[in-house]
Design a protein around this nucleic acid. Sequence first.
DNA 1: AAGAATTCCTATCATTTTACTTGGGATTAG
DNA 2: CTAATCCCAAGTAAAATGATAGGAATTCTT
Lengths: 141, 141
Amino acid sequence: MKLSTKGRYGLKAMFDLAIHDGEGPIPLNSIAERQRVSEHYLEQLVAELRKSGLVKSVRGAQGGYMLAHKPAEITVGDIIRVLEGPLGPSDCVLEDGPVLCDNADHCITKIVWEKIQVGISSVIDTITLQDMLEDYKKIEN
Amino acid sequence: MKLSTKGRYGLKAMFDLAIHDGEGPIPLNSIAERQRVSEHYLEQLVAELRKSGLVKSVRGAQGGYMLAHKPAEITVGDIIRVLEGPLGPSDCVLEDGPVLCDNADHCITKIVWEKIQVGISSVIDTITLQDMLEDYKKIEN
DNA sequence: AAGAATTCCTATCATTTTACTTGGGATTAG
DNA sequence: CTAATCCCAAGTAAAATGATAGGAATTCTT
């Protein structure tokens, strides 16, 4: 019941981009260094974030990545869903087309999984990068 | 971000035991059959539940397993924690002794993981097997 | 006492997932 | 031109998952 490094590194990278929002393209190696993760590995994660439209890229020298939207418009849920796939503690409650078992109608554990899913979603869908930035400013001062 | 079959099968088995609570020892093969999971695999999960004190066992013929406490006294969280290990979306917020990174004090993503953890815990720690039994009775009628 | 039912224990194993690493190609600012 | 940077595709070692196999220990029933 843990997130993989994809989700964790991905959120770190996105938060890093949020901190530098408005400064033009941020090269990946600087993000990797600050967040202390493998640059090549991070590259794969950012590629997914780019394909899903959360970040934009600028190629060539002095290029890099930047947020595709304002920090207030990107939630933690957006990021995690891209990197970890459809959310849900069990296949039968996956957000993205549940795989129902044969007695789904009478399955009591399913009710539990649904409640867990709602609990997680209600957290990650209400935290934006902007919220994280504000927490960050508080701590810095 | 999914539970493994351990947690899922384990909760099913515990719910099955709750349904038959008070009927004496329930043999594992009957649980495996009703819940449609491998008996041998289930055995491993139930062994962990026994060691952690959630179920009792009676050996020998006519033996089996039974809940060690009343259904109202066992939460979903108790069961999942035994089978899935200490809860938390990231190592730095594991319930059972977090593994702190070097800038834990200034880590903003950590705040997010903590909120997710609280969200999950508040769900699974408030649902008991008794609650599930009541849902079950409603559906049956 | 025999035999059947059942838990208990240890080991093995195939598959999948994770978390990278490697190596190179394409693009562009200076 | 060249250095910086993104882009892409494979490969890979380790861990986790989800079992399977076989048998020893215990206890009920007859």
